[in-house]
């Protein structure tokens, strides 16, 4: 499929995501958020990259979530377009109401950048349908507001929406160590770890490709 990596003002993993996708042969364009509304029809998949959209000044992701670009992304999600939100992208998707829960300040109250191991907990997401339950993926996290919180954990479990959990140490105090969730339909996935930073052995590993390669289908 052809993928749009949406660049908001302040996105900073946009080029990294484009690089990782192109490395594995996904046809990928970097699309400025204002331009997306004019050319959205060209794309079969959407990646919302990490960074600090609008500086995360009001609350992480909230300004991007209220752009007309994201309103369009919401509509596209209802027509089954696969959408992957990474880090700030995950925060934007929860702020836009496409994913359940919220991402609040890390329990340490500080930014954390380190490699973590996450386990696959659900195959409900299109991005994990071919992965083995409880299999482990190594990739880096880099965030100050990645602590997942929700007021209805049971519902998420009941609907199989908890896709990734941190293994071992819970780096940010997330509820039940949740690192990624999907929507009810399974076409929208958000996670705090960075699969695009685990896309090549020379930079530490390529487990991230196991998620990104869905865009190759």
């Amino acid at each position: 499929m052809k993928v749009a990596v949406i660049q908001f003002l302040g996105s900073n993993c946009d080029l990294d995501s484009v690089w990782a996708l192109r490395q594995i042969g996904v046809t990928t364009d970097l699309v400025y958020y204002k331009d997306f509304e004019e050319i959205y029809y060209k794309y079969d998949g959407i990646l919302i990259p990490g960074g600090f959209s609008w500086g995360d000044y009001l609350r992480a992701g909230v300004i991007a979530a209220n752009t007309s670009c994201m309103k369009l992304v919401c509509e596209l999600s209802e027509s089954d377009v696969p959408i992957l939100g990474i880090c700030n992208g995950f925060q934007i998707l929860t702020e836009a109401g496409l994913l359940p829960g919220a991402l609040i300040r890390n329990d340490s109250l500080s930014f954390i950048c380190k490699w973590v191991t996450i386990s696959v907990e659900s195959k409900k997401s299109v991005f994990t349908k071919d992965l083995v339950i409880k299999s482990q993926l190594k990739m880096p996290i880099a965030h100050g507001e990645g602590r997942f919180a929700t007021d209805d954990l049971n519902k998420l479990y009941k609907n199989n929406q908890v896709v990734f959990k941190y293994l071992g140490e819970n780096p940010n105090g997330s509820m039940d160590a949740i690192a990624g969730v999907t929507n009810l339909n399974g076409n929208v996935l958000g996670l705090m770890p960075h699969p695009e930073r685990a896309s090549d052995n020379i930079i530490g590993g390529k487990d991230g490709l196991k998620i990104l390669k869905y865009f190759l289908t």
Binding site: R197, I203, G204
Partner: peptide, 28 residues
């Protein structure tokens, strides 16, 4: 110090600060 710094962004960091005191970045 370095876990507070984003030392991975850019997908260039080859050697990580826990095993190397030098910044080693690939040129894409």
């Amino acid at each position: 110090i370095y876990t507070h710094y984003d030392h991975e962004v850019g997908v260039r960091t080859i050697l990580k600060p826990n095993v190397c005191d030098v910044a080693v970045l690939r040129i894409l």
